[in-house]
Design a protein around this nucleic acid. Structure first.
Lengths: 123, 123
DNA sequence: TCAATAGTCAAGCAGTTGCTTAACTATTTC
DNA sequence: GAAATAGTTAAGCAACTGCTTGACTATTGA
């Protein structure tokens, strides 16, 4: 059947994006490079904490940084974002194809014998 | 009422997607509804563990389920996927706009005093 | 009615995460 | 060369995760 190649990279990317602080750092870096202090300024936490978030972002390839003098400059690395986006888009299109097939099936069938489970409040 | 999706919702969605087991459950459900046992069959873990993953997926709205008789049937709920996809796409386009601006700047400027900082080799 | 099936609940445990503080190194700037 | 700036390292800690096992309920089929 389907061979699951565990994608640790996706694990790390989604994990990195699962934190509001790190997402805000990505939002900042998407507008242009920034130093660690730049990234830390709007955040209400210690500099080491910011460094640790930065390390998470670097470990999954979302961000790169380099040091010049005493300043470390960080910039975004969009490939990781694209990988995550593509995984989601792939699932969504897969789901939409399923809807198409269901539509075809319903169009070709007098009645739908398929029964939805317990009632759920469609909000 | 207000159709406001707070950011901690994104936290939970990305957190849910940060696990290979849960992503494989999403991949399965994207092809059509499945029972808890269906979801558990290809996974090498106990049924309670699968239930806990399912609860994570339901808590962030990626999956819905309902019970009919003794069978709980799960199906995907694509809005959450779309929210995550849109967050990423928004950042990516923001980054691309930045590239455009950089391109304009470079086109309007005699020489580019760009200084690429040293790259740190993360081991 | 009895046993198999499908799922659920609760406790517990090892490993991870997100933060802190304290102490430290390296680079400017005065 | 002393002080300010920018970042780094390490240790520690509470909360959270992902999993387990054991005991349990509810439904179905013979």
């Amino acid at each position: 059947m389907v061979k699951y190649v565990p994608n640790y990279e996706l694990d790390r990317i989604f994990q990195a994006l699962a934190d509001e602080t790190r997402r805000s750092m990505v939002e900042r870096l998407v507008r242009g490079p920034a130093s660690v202090s730049d990234l830390a300024r709007p955040l209400e936490m210690s500099l080491p904490a910011v460094m640790q978030h930065l390390q998470v972002l670097e470990a999954c390839g979302l961000v790169r940084s380099g040091k010049s003098g005493r300043v470390r400059t960080c910039h975004i690395q969009p490939e990781g974002l694209r990988a995550a986006e593509e995984w989601i888009a792939g699932r969504r299109t897969s789901w939409e194809r399923g809807l198409d097939r269901l539509g075809d099936y319903l169009a070709d069938t007098p009645q739908a014998p398929d029964q939805a489970p317990e009632n759920r409040s469609t909000s």
